[in-house]
Structures are given as C-alpha cells and as structure tokens.
Amino acid sequence: MATAVLPQPVQNLINELARLPGIGPKSAARLTFFLLRDGSNQALELADALRDLKERTRFCSVCFNITENDPCQICDDDERDQELLCVVEEPLDMLALERSRAYNGRYHILHGAISPVEGIGPEDLKVDELIHRVQNGSFRELILATNPTLEGESTALYLKRILAGNDIRITGLARGLSVGGDLEYTDEITLGRALDGRSDL
C-alpha cells in the first residue's frame, strides 16, 4: 500500500525553511502551506527577493559594508571627511551610527569580534584589511566603536595595540548616561563610568 507523502517541491521548501534560525519544522510547514495556497504572486516575489539578496549584494571592497555597488555609497561620497575612520563590529552598528547623524567620516566593518570561546580570532575578521587601510590611508583619527562587551572591548584593545605605531589618534566611544535617562535609576557601574569620563561644560 502506498502511503501519502508530500510532493518533493513542498518537502524541499519545508526542509530549507527549517534550517533558518528561529524556525522549527512546524513553523516551516506552516509557512510553506501559506505560500502554496496564496493566490497572489507573493511566493514568486519572495523568490525574487531571495535571489536578489545573493546576486545583487556584495561586500564593499573598501569598508566591507554590504552594498549593491562597489565601492559603497559612503566610500564613494567625497563630501564625507576622508581622514576620519570609525570601526564597528557589524553592518547594523554602522546603520545605528548613521541614524545619529552625528558622524560624517568613513567606516570599517569587522564582521564580528574576537572571541576564542566561539573560535573567532583576528584572522576571521576584517583586521588585516583595516591595518592595510590605515597604513595606506591618510587618517588622522580612528574611532573604535565596538560594543561595550568583554569581546568588543578586547577587540578594541587588540586593534589599539597593533595600530599603535601609526601616528594616528585612536579613540573610543564614551560610556555613561543615556540621554533622557534618570540619574536615580542608573546602575552604579554605568554612573561610575560616566563620572570617570565627565567633560567640561
């Protein structure tokens, strides 16, 4: 007796979706059947979007941002300060800094932070590329804007150490109070860092 099986294309999509982070076999099946039943072109639009994601994006060869055109918009923009370089862990960190509208220099994206526990060393990040950029560029300041985690801070310390001899000012982001926050509700460690880094008014 033949048992009922799913047609291969349906099973294929379920398998592929189930490999994504945060999606289990049940959710994958639900999404697959949603796309199968959908009368409009949603499934094909999704397919096009996925194809474009891989075919029309690449890393910028200068800063390693994700871009459609190489070099990316920011690296290509002559209006920006060419002597200021900000180093971040991920593309999303760069977008966060852009939203601040407070920065008008260039970026370098490391694509991670040093973490031996996860097997990530400098060779797995865009560190050699950064060294090359600094040595061959005319930057006056390097802003190390890694996350204030153990891994992020360690990465910044490592970069500071290996870039030290380059006649370039190396800075880090200030740690302290959040704007619109309340002194009373700020934890004492953050408050201590804010006091250490107080500035003239």
Partner: peptide, 30 residues
C-alpha cells in the same frame, strides 16, 4: 569568569597549534 573562559579557550587553541598568540595579552590583561 567570562574573561577567564576566553583566555582558557585561547590557551587550549594555542596548545593545539591554532589560535593567534598576539591576542593572548588582551585576555591576560582583562
């Protein structure tokens, strides 16, 4: 404890011949 875990992971990698020796001082300092 986190810094120690990172340093120990790196020491193990170095003992196995992988990992980058020049990152060890960072975790030692921490």
């Amino acid at each position: 404890n986190k810094a120690l875990e990172q340093r120990n992971a790196l020491l193990r990698q170095l003992a196995e011949g992988t990992g980058r020796r020049d990152t060890l001082p960072i975790f030692t300092d921490k």
